[in-house]
Design a protein around this nucleic acid. Structure first.
Lengths: 159, 159
DNA sequence: TATTGTTATACTCTATAACTATA
DNA sequence: TATAGTTATAGAGTATAACAATA
């Protein structure tokens, strides 16, 4: 007869395997699905995530700050911002305090586009989430949030 | 005084907003983190996901089948398989039954590499998951699995 | 004629290293 | 000298369209 401890270990192993499969798959499916959806707005995933990072910072920030928030190196951000700026979705403003750097921010056009995309996403999620009982919903959110934070912490550590 | 229905609606709205934020962010963080980790194996995310799709199919498949499983178009898969084949991680085998197509499969080197990566991922997850009580773990897995399936179904529909 | 897979093309993302301007 | 940002470079992924070989 097996001990309770061994039983729990086996269960943990099984759960870890399942979790490994789900998170790997979910990351890729999410990425490809987002790319597909953003295409109709003529945006790429990195462009969208950069705009989102700008919105989240809330105020004009430097290229370096933006690069860090968007999980990119600064050379990459330069290219992304160039393309977004050509379409008047973001703007570089001179920074009188330090003439080496800019203040980058979303234009009103950029902010509106971001709102439109967010609204579309909320509509899709509403259908899915309204099928879950309130307690399950909140438990899911809490666990996802913990997991996300664990991932973000880990990313910072390996920097 | 507000009705219970209105209260529930407001709660649903709040949960939908949170879920929208978390899933968007998680997709990007996962993608960047995976890219960073895979770099130490000299693999890109699409290369890894293609190898994973091959492993999941289990037997040799055609380029078209692989493209569909890896959520790519066939022209993209051609390039990815070319690069993996040069490193002996996958192989194209002649298909006597139809000389237009190949049977693609992982080599033993490719399979070993995949195992090594999976093992590393399990180790990391184990630390995180052993902190969760068994019931919470399984509830999380159930909900994530449902969500993943909902996403995959949606991807197929928009094809 | 239809299907399988590749090639051609054009563009974006990505990281590293070299560089320019400013502090 | 150090820092902010860009440019140069090389390579990978991406989709569309044109193409070759085979069915």
């Amino acid at each position: 007869m097996t001990s309770i401890t061994a039983e729990l270990d086996r269960q943990l192993q099984a759960d870890v395997n399942t979790m490994a499969r789900i998170t790997t798959e979910m990351g890729w499916v999410t990425h490809r699905q987002q790319a597909q959806r953003l295409k109709s707005f003529d945006l790429t995933v990195p462009q969208f995530m950069t705009m989102r990072a700008l919105a989240q910072i809330g105020q004009a920030c430097t290229m370096s700050e933006l690069a860090e928030a968007a999980l990119q190196v600064s050379a990459t951000i330069t290219g992304i911002i160039n393309r977004l700026e050509e379409r008047d979705l973001v703007e570089r403003l001179l920074n009188p305090a330090d003439r080496r750097s800019f203040r980058v921010s979303l234009t009103s056009t950029g902010l509106n586009l971001l709102d439109e995309i967010a609204q579309q996403k909320r509509s899709r999620l509403q259908t899915y989430m309204s099928h879950l009982p309130t307690t399950k919903r909140q438990e899911l959110l809490g666990l996802l949030n913990d997991y996300l934070q664990a991932m973000q912490t880990e990313l910072e550590e390996t920097d």
